[in-house]
Design a protein around this nucleic acid. Sequence first.
RNA 1: GCUCACGUAGCUCAGUCGGUAGAGCACUUCCUUGGUAAGGAAGAGGUCACAGGUUCGAUUCCUGUCGUGAGCACCA
Length: 634
Amino acid sequence: MVTITLPDNSTRSFDSPPTVRDIAASIGAGLAKAAIAGKIDGKLVDLSHPVDHDARVEIVTEKSPEALDIIRHSTAHLLAQAVQRLYPGTQVTIGPVIENGFYYDFARPEPFKPEDLPAIEAEMKKIAAEALPVSRSVKSRDEATKFFRDMGEEYKAQIIESIPANEELSLYTQGEFTDLCRGPHVPDTGKLKSFKLMKVAGAYWRGNSDNEMLSRIYGTAWLNDKDLKAYLTQLEEAEKRDHRKIGKQLDLFHQQEEAPGMVFWHPNGWIIWQQVEQYMRRVYRESGYQEVRCPSILDVSLWKKSGHWDNYKDNMFFTESEKRTYAVKPMNCPGHVQIYNDGLHSYRDLPIRYGEFGSCTRNEPSGALHGIMRVRAFTQDDGHIFCTEEQIESEVTAFHEQALNVYRHFGFSDVAIKLALRPEPRLGSDEVWDKAEAALRDALRACGAEWEELPGEGAFYGPKIEYHLKDAIGRTWQLGTMQVDFMMPERLGAEYVDEQSQKRHPVMLHRAIVGSMERFIGILIEHHAGNFPAWLAPVQAVVMNITDAQADYADEVAKALNERGFRARADLRNEKIGYKIREHTLHKVPWLLVVGDREKALGTVSVRALSGEDMGNMPLPEFVERLSSAGVSR
RNA sequence: GCUCACGUAGCUCAGUCGGUAGAGCACUUCCUUGGUAAGGAAGAGGUCACAGGUUCGAUUCCUGUCGUGAGCACCA
């Protein structure tokens, strides 16, 4: 006798152990049909799983939060089966669920091509239509290894060898295809309806670049066609926001072959940069930083002392002169330590905070470059705080507040915090790392923040807090960082004199809010889809005359606006007003001012917002007042 | 760096099964002076990424280099 408790706390008894499917059927035929999997005491299982003891059981249907992952995982198997039907001899490896879909890595001499995808997808649809039942079986380690070796599936055999001995090995079979898998899976392939293969790519076996490259196929899968379509639409939306495209449309910057991973900022783009920089400069000032500036190249000996040479020499640029080797600086911290070291410091001076818009150059691998988001020459809003251990907490909490304010100011309100812990390899003893990690945890706790911990993700000299922001279409970007560093001051000989006249090493905090200016502007472009808030817009207003008769007045209006600190231009071209409006709308100018005979006679402007909204006719001073009160000139 | 794809006018793209290229927009000139998302006409503009090879002939085919894109790996 087995007693089952359902989520509504009702119970059902069975004479012999029922399967999850039996339980669903006993509740209703409709539920049995909709069932995808089950949960026994919170653990996900297949529908065919027997329940041999009293337990709480839940039927997983499309409405359950777990359903999507199961469907995606099963769709990955569907892909593998289709591939093996069409390309016999292809070895299967792994096929996990990822955000929005799944992938499967295959081993074969010829990698898959984009042209192969339609045929594979068609075969998947065919297998889904066959509605093959999916069955689970358990094999011993030796049996399973032999099973896959006999089929020529060397990678699967290797995976089995890496699974801990105490774990059960389960196999899932659908038709002629069997895969090693933890499960659970849908009961039959007919449950898989809304999927699409997206792209092919190379990927290393076990994620290690020393291993052979496999051929990966990415796919997306959803509960229904409507969700699938919505996802594809969202991808199109992301494509429209691409900063490389908008950067070209709005004439913000360009990149060219002779300077891979570097940016040529055009006048429009540089205005945005300056707005961001001036704003961040104010943040430095208001939070007690002194702005400094360091040389771009420094003798390589300094980078050997700091540890950067050991860890990053392959990613640094070097230059030589008169038998000395210099490194183009990849970071600003050693420079800031030199400024700190030039003079004697008392404990009374601490904390000392230096800020710099520091230009860094790193020889990033060519494959890592991406528009202005990942470049070789970039500028950080980089700051370093020299303080005592006791001051860490208050410095970190103050920074935290400041960072959140900045993000809000730029229109980001959804911020997640992560704490990256000690990596391999690293500098320093475990005791020092314990201390550094504890200091950051304490500070976060003091801020009342919630955070996620990322083991192994810290910098080689210290752990770091990371700020991850969500943009307008739900993508996340890591921006700010706060890192505690007990190593660098000692390595580079930074000291202060304490109350007992003893020399001691200060703690160094590395911090950035927007991180790379290039990347941040790229993110701003995509977040706003090019429709910048007026304070960032390269051109805030364009004054357009209707006919030549108002050219002088339009010019006057533009001049008056410029004199009041706004970025305004007059468009006096001999074009129809509709043409000018279209053009400046496409260039995303926040305000379009139309002046004809009426406006000229009355000294007014006719205002049109970027959205197309007609804001009516108003005297120029009133328009200026509106801009000022909207905080546009900051 | 690795795998695959791509590189044609300022931009977006077509095209050439090997006979040195075309559209729209932008640009220049002229006509038009028009009230809220494209008025008309004419003109100019390209060593088809670069370097080799095959060929009577290469933008087209082959090889290499550089760059770009999508992933992987990397991201102090």
